[in-house]
């Protein structure tokens, strides 16, 4: 089992507006892309974000060697429950997933 953070050179999370979060896994090479694309279960991702699989939009973009995941923000940006105004740290959750 390998952490995604040890496989992908860059994992980025950003707000996509106040209500959505988007996470880009930059795999750099086709080999890493195939490995993560095949090994990463959307259900596993949903579990890490305490949400349902149906809430996750996933794009495996071979042309860029990027896997993109978008989901409704765990807390709406800037509400009392929100902890990360720019959504920058959610990438760490994905980085800790293992395949």
């Amino acid at each position: 089992m390998t952490r995604l953070a040890d496989m992908a050179p860059k994992i980025r999370s950003k707000n996509a507006g106040p209500f959505w979060l988007t996470i880009d896994i930059f795999c750099e090479t086709a080999e890493v892309f195939t490995r993560i694309s095949d090994g990463l279960q959307t259900a596993e991702m949903a579990r890490a974000f305490a949400t349902q699989t149906g809430q996750i939009k996933r794009f495996d973009i071979a042309a860029l060697n990027v896997i993109k995941i978008s989901l409704p923000r765990p807390a709406v940006q800037g509400t009392r429950e929100d902890r990360d105004m720019h959504g920058a740290s959610f990438a760490e959750i994905v980085g800790e997933l293992r395949i």
């Binding site: 950003k14 507006g17 988007t22 939009k57 990027v66 978008s70």
Partner: peptide
């Protein structure tokens, strides 16, 4: 092309 990913829920 990678910029279509940026802050966009659908690339």
């Amino acid at each position: 092309s990678a910029h279509m990913l940026y802050e966009n829920s659908d690339p």
